[in-house]
Design a protein around this nucleic acid. Structure first.
Lengths: 134, 134
DNA sequence: AATTACGTTTACGTTTGCGTCAAAATACCG
DNA sequence: CGGTATTTTGACGCAAACGTAAACGTAATT
């Protein structure tokens, strides 16, 4: 049937502890099926976990990540007002992402400058070594 | 001479509390001059604070932000080994930024899809309202 | 039957990044 | 110079995001 995963499968794949995975469930970010007491993760759960990790890399809190994931999940069967609220939230998130993109571009520029300065300094050190030794 | 700022000047400009600014100093991210006991912030301090805020928007910890800022500051008067270590750190940071850029691009794509679904759902609701009411 | 591997809940501990007083010292303004 | 506003240094508090046992159940392996 459908592929499933144990908690340690996922902890290995995403390189996080099982403690973290259970904590995410505690915070409402995951809701795996159970066989008795044991958690059984579906492909959908795995996708959600991937989204969680991506959110973390972007510096989002677990609450913000939950908001974002819930946003993706729930689009049908909404009232006009709810849809308009959703669209408003989406606009906000888009602006945040744009700001982050700008921040990244700036950081990359500065890093490149620093990198070149370092390489230049290295070159000069090597040249000095040449001229002083011969 | 040089323009300076009080702690509340900066707290207003960057919309953070003075508590935060002092905490950043405590963590070694800032080192303003003093007139007696009172902190006097220079243009350079203001730049550093801007870098701190940018780092926070990218989800960096204060320790990581400090590392990055220190990296920009210190490039001259280094040994070959130190310069090579610097270059190695720069490579790592570049990779992280590239990953973040990918994460942002993915998020933006998904947000756009969700946005269009929302707008489509809104349109359909409005059309249904038209046909059922007339 | 005993070991090994994995999973479960419960619960207390830790680090980070500040918020929130408190009490005292400084600074600025008419 | 007196009053108001600002700043300073503690010190305690707190939420988030786990880490780290402890103590137990289950299941497969030897």
């Amino acid at each position: 049937m459908e592929q499933t995963y144990s908690i340690s499968d996922l902890s290995r794949e995403f390189d996080i502890t099982t403690r973290s995975i259970r904590f995410y469930e505690d915070q409402g970010l995951l809701a795996p099926a159970r066989r008795g007491q044991t958690r059984i993760y579906s492909k959908g759960d795995r996708v959600r976990l991937r989204l969680i990790m991506r959110g973390k890399r972007l510096g989002l809190s677990l609450a913000e990540i939950k908001e974002t994931i819930d946003l993706y999940d729930a689009s049908p069967s909404k009232s006009v007002i709810q849809l308009e609220q959703l669209l408003s939230i989406i606009q906000q998130k888009k602006k945040l992402l744009e700001q982050q993109a700008r921040d990244i571009a700036e950081s990359q520029l500065e890093l490149n400058v620093t990198e070149q300065r370092c390489q230049q300094a290295l070159l000069e050190l090597q040249q000095n070594a040449d001229t002083s030794d011969n």
